[in-house]
């Protein structure tokens, strides 16, 4: 990068690294939230309880059909209208977590549905209860099937953290736009920001693909 005097270029790299750290924090917090929430909703959707199934379906379909930008601006700009003020970071984690939760719930459901019906029938035939069936037969296999979709959700969350820029969280994209408006070097700055994202997403993608090939059950 050429940004005039030598010291300045170093400063900019520092700023991008600081932004990258915020992106990583956003991604990790929202993934933890999404995983917890997604597990809850996912289990509701495969439970024998009709009302929980309906609620889970409404949640998943609703959140997947909503741009994440709408969620974030709703929390950050909308909620103060009814006197609920949350920090920008919290709004971003909330938006990303709720959104990612819907995808994780769907991944869990499809992982469970991929298990052949015969196994469940066999489990029932030898007298397992619903809890035993889930714990001993269904979930251990489903856990291996959902590795790939969970990895996708995580990589998507990393990319979606960029939306947090709209509610003034200074992550990678926010840092880059700040630098562009101050120093007017859009090409270098955005390329550096892009590299920061690729350094996160490409190794993550490779890691999850590798994990999948080791854990997945071949059918």
């Amino acid at each position: 990068m050429t940004h005039g005097p030598g010291k300045r270029a170093v400063d900019h790299i520092g700023a991008i690294i600081a932004g990258t750290w915020v992106t990583i924090q956003l991604a990790i917090f929202s993934f933890i939230g999404a995983a917890a929430f997604g597990l809850l909703i996912g289990i509701s959707r495969i439970s024998p309880v009709p009302s929980l199934r309906v609620a889970g379906t409404v949640y998943v379909e609703g959140l997947r059909s909503m741009p994440i930008t709408v969620l974030m601006v709703f929390f950050y700009f909308g909620l103060p209208d009814i006197k609920v003020s949350l920090s920008a970071f919290t709004c971003a984690v909330l938006g990303l977590g709720l959104y990612g939760g819907a995808y994780i719930a769907e991944a869990i459901r499809s992982g469970v549905n991929a298990i052949p019906a015969g196994q469940i029938e066999a489990g029932r035939a030898i007298g397992l209860t619903q809890g035993q069936l889930l714990r001993d037969i269904v979930l251990p296999q489903a856990a291996r099937t959902v590795v790939a979709p969970m990895g996708n959700v995580f990589v998507d969350l990393v990319k979606n953290t960029s939306i947090a820029y709209t509610i003034s969280v200074v992550e990678i994209t926010g840092t880059a736009t700040n630098l562009v408006s101050r120093y007017a070097k859009p090409v270098e700055t955005f390329v550096a920001a892009g590299l920061a994202y690729l350094i996160l997403t490409i190794p993550l993608g490779m890691y999850f693909r590798n994990l999948e090939s080791r854990k997945a059950i071949k059918r």
Binding site: V155, K159, N160, T161, S162, I163, Y165, I172, T173, A176, T177, V180, P186, V187, F190, A193, G194, Y197, L198, T201, I202, G205
Partner: peptide, 17 residues
């Protein structure tokens, strides 16, 4: 590369760079 980048960043790049 393009799968690993946020769509927003690509849009900003088009618009500002």
């Amino acid at each position: 590369c393009f799968r690993g980048l946020p769509t927003l960043l690509l849009i900003l790049f088009m618009y500002f760079a």
